[in-house]
């Protein structure tokens, strides 16, 4: 009887182990299915140049875009206001009192596209080199014809386009990949830039902006204005859904402290 009990206990344990194992597999499968980010990253086929470039560039580009957005649209801003330990670029500025500011970057979207492009051009070369190497290790002959790197910020997307690039791999037969492109998750940068443009328009015209009007018109964008002692206004635009920020500085129609004298 004693042996039988032991045997029963062992069988019971095995059954429990099997059930636990099945549960773990089921949970893992559920997580894999329900988490699109996880499934796509695990499921990426490194034999696919499109996926390779996306994986290689995505995180670094996102990081660069975030830095550029927090600094007023430039990787290394020159004319800045130090706010909260960040150098924020003036997009509209006057050094005089009582006068409206002069627009410093009227073509802001294009300027940011150029800044992103310059910040990732080295990275793009590295990624293409790594991709070629990766395919060569798998026995392919790989070659690359380079073209023009383009960054395109538009409604709902930020895309890195490899215009004229052609990546070729040969192993018996030749496969050509052109129209290579990396699309980033939408961070609403386009809308933030357009709102910044509108604010700058008002700064040039009137020297001030009513942020409540902007928040009423764009309720999903938090608009903040932090006035500084010298009359500089730091604008912080935050997408409420993604928490993505675009910040910039402006100094327009500033008033001196107290009774002006010379």
């Amino acid at each position: 009887m004693g042996d039988l009990r032991v045997s029963m206990n062992k069988k019971g344990q095995v059954t429990i182990f099997i059930i636990v194992a099945l549960l773990i597999i089921a949970i893992a499968a559920l997580v894999y299915i329900l988490s699109p980010g996880l499934s796509s990253s695990i499921g990426r086929d490194s034999n696919n140049p499109y996926d390779f470039m996306q994986t290689c560039l995505e995180d670094d580009v996102n990081n660069n875009v975030e830095i550029i957005s927090l600094q007023g649209g430039s990787t290394e801003p020159e004319h800045t206001y130090l706010y909260d330990d960040s150098n924020i670029e003036y997009l509209c500025y006057t050094n005089e009192y009582y006068l409206p500011c002069i627009m410093q970057q009227p073509l802001l979207k294009q300027h940011i596209e150029t800044e992103i492009k310059n910040s990732i051009s080295g990275l793009v070369e590295q990624c293409f080199a790594a991709m070629g190497e990766s395919f060569e290790k798998k026995g392919y002959d790989a070659s690359l014809n380079t073209g023009e790197l383009e960054v395109n910020i538009s409604e709902n997307s930020l895309a890195i386009i490899f215009e004229g690039y052609e990546f070729t791999i040969t192993k018996g037969e030749t496969e050509r990949y052109d129209e290579l492109k990396v699309e980033l998750a939408d961070n609403n940068l386009y809308e933030l830039i357009m709102i910044a443009n509108s604010i700058l328009d008002w700064e040039v015209e009137y020297g001030d902006v009513d942020i409540a009007t902007y928040m009423n018109y764009y309720p999903h964008i938090k608009t903040e204005k932090k006035i500084q002692d010298d009359g500089t206004a730091i604008y912080i635009l935050t997408d409420r859904d993604t928490e993505f920020k675009f910040q910039f500085a402006s100094r327009s129609i500033a008033w001196p402290a107290g009774y002006p004298q010379r």
Partner: peptide, 18 residues
């Protein structure tokens, strides 16, 4: 102070009470 989307945002007036 501004109430927007359930959040109060502060909007300081010009420095030096200008």
């Amino acid at each position: 102070l501004i109430c927007s989307n359930g959040e109060v945002t502060s909007d300081p007036c010009d420095s030096f009470r200008n």
